[in-house]
Design a protein around this nucleic acid. Sequence first.
DNA 1: TTGTAAGCGTTATCAC
DNA 2: GTGATAACGCTTACAA
Lengths: 343, 343
Amino acid sequence: MVTSRDVARLAGVSQSTVSYVMSGRRSISPETRRRVEEAIETLGFQPNAGARALASQRSQVIGLVVPFAPGADMTGVLPFIETITKCAREEDHNVILATEDEGAEGLTRLSDQSLCDAIVLMEVGSKDPRIPVAAGLSVPVILIGVPDDPAGLYCVDLDYTLAGRMAVDELADSAHDRVVLLGYPRDVLARDVNFVRRFLRGAEDAAAAAAHGIAYAEVSPPDTSRAGAEAALDEALAELGPDGSRLGLVVPDPQLIQPTLQSLLDRGLVPGRDLSVIGLCTDRTAETSTPPVTNLSLEPRDVSRRAMRILFRLLNRESVPTTSTVELVTPRLTLRQTSLPAR
Amino acid sequence: MVTSRDVARLAGVSQSTVSYVMSGRRSISPETRRRVEEAIETLGFQPNAGARALASQRSQVIGLVVPFAPGADMTGVLPFIETITKCAREEDHNVILATEDEGAEGLTRLSDQSLCDAIVLMEVGSKDPRIPVAAGLSVPVILIGVPDDPAGLYCVDLDYTLAGRMAVDELADSAHDRVVLLGYPRDVLARDVNFVRRFLRGAEDAAAAAAHGIAYAEVSPPDTSRAGAEAALDEALAELGPDGSRLGLVVPDPQLIQPTLQSLLDRGLVPGRDLSVIGLCTDRTAETSTPPVTNLSLEPRDVSRRAMRILFRLLNRESVPTTSTVELVTPRLTLRQTSLPAR
DNA sequence: TTGTAAGCGTTATCAC
DNA sequence: GTGATAACGCTTACAA
């Protein structure tokens, strides 16, 4: 292993000079800088992370707590992981992973062992038991998701309330007379992630808005399997409107979208011809569904980037927007093949 | 921050005794152990990771290099990340993430900065430029994937050659008389991941086997989009066999499966009724495709677990199977709705 | 502009 | 069975 002492010896300077050349925390004469950088280059010196962390009290690591809970939407988390990792690297930081099933201890471990300088907590529940713990840690914590009580922590998330509203509004505006929301399955409800109720509230609010006067109902599939979708659809389609009535289905669970589309096709109901379907999912998921589903985007990359922006401002002791602790990203509606043509 | 010195003071022992109680590397009297453990408990002591790493030359961290390259199969990597992270935690290790786009420097960084004790390298290419670098690092590297020259590194992967063979054999055994392989799209080919050619070789070998005498062809879609699938199918279906002939489609790219199924349905061809489709993907993907596709499983969890088992044997200086440096996992065939019924 | 030296919080080698 | 104490490799006052 090559250390900064080796570099110092080769460059004919003191060890601290090497350190200062690397950190830029004091001015160095051009000549010295050149010699040191040359020595670093020829020796291939890389500073020891542990030693650096110990001395500087900064690990240059971001802790990322991901939801690997059974039933969690797998396809959805990857863009978050990817974007967060890349943002971290841009600021010369690394990312260490922890899984949701470690619970609150996972957080204290990351923080108290000085494994990281800040934590990003994904998919927080409404009354997530980790929130009070997170608020008491010695490292800043950014939440992706909005708990009932953010406890002063910064939160970034999609504006699910707006998403719910947009879904219903879109259907109402395009002359649908009935909206059925295929809710989240039981296991998602059990995890009590906050976005569920936010989305539902948005949808309900929009449906209740006087201007529309649209029929609105919610059904809950038992799970995201084909059978779950079937059961939900049985209920949703039970009382079909009069011939020529326009039905819109809203499917907020990405995992339920494809099974729902398939069940509809199996029944001879073609989305985009016989009824409308609006999904809440990433554009990627929407593009590759069969048929491509009109969707409200989840914008995982945008959400992640904003979270990391706040995080690094916090770490660099820069000013952080103090107006609100909650930052919401506006979803984007993209019409695809599952929307009924205008009447 | 509470240190082992604080614990030692409270327990009335020396700092080294605290260390030995935690590591169990020397015998401690029951009474001393009790007092120390009590002190740890009341103070909530957590050892500083950086200091520990510095002193012990062990970071207790596993580096995981994931393929976030554009075009990489997103859904596929998550089970790997999850399984690897959990295996690491079981052995009291953490996981630090690096992305493929960091290239070989990413590896040297992880190793030379002593950020981790071992590296897992996912989705290695046939002539991956990172392999020679990996072989020269001071930490062990486990490959997921099999390069042309493993350079003595341990590799774990699905047996893609066997998978290719199994796909064609299954179709041949179920009285199909024509097999078309919808190959990997250009961007996957460009990445030159080794499994592509292994799968193709397996399929070709099986097709060539005298016993079958089955017509075999390969077509390459430009990409995994709907349009890509369309183009590939145009070619694949160009010369349709005589009426009543049994065609089998093999689709090794998970991302191409759904677009292909959709394109077939659009043409009025129902998989499982008019032709067979066999996909190479995780069971989860197969279950939720429309219709559920007969598949050969990618077994990401099994592959990951085996990789981690080798890794920790290496770290613990236990004996490692020396017979071969390459460990291949057998894919599993599951018949679903896209297989033609027996004639 | 540069050097000296005191930590940072562990681990592990001696000694007893 | 336990206690001093010297590393581990870096950062950062404090001097010069």
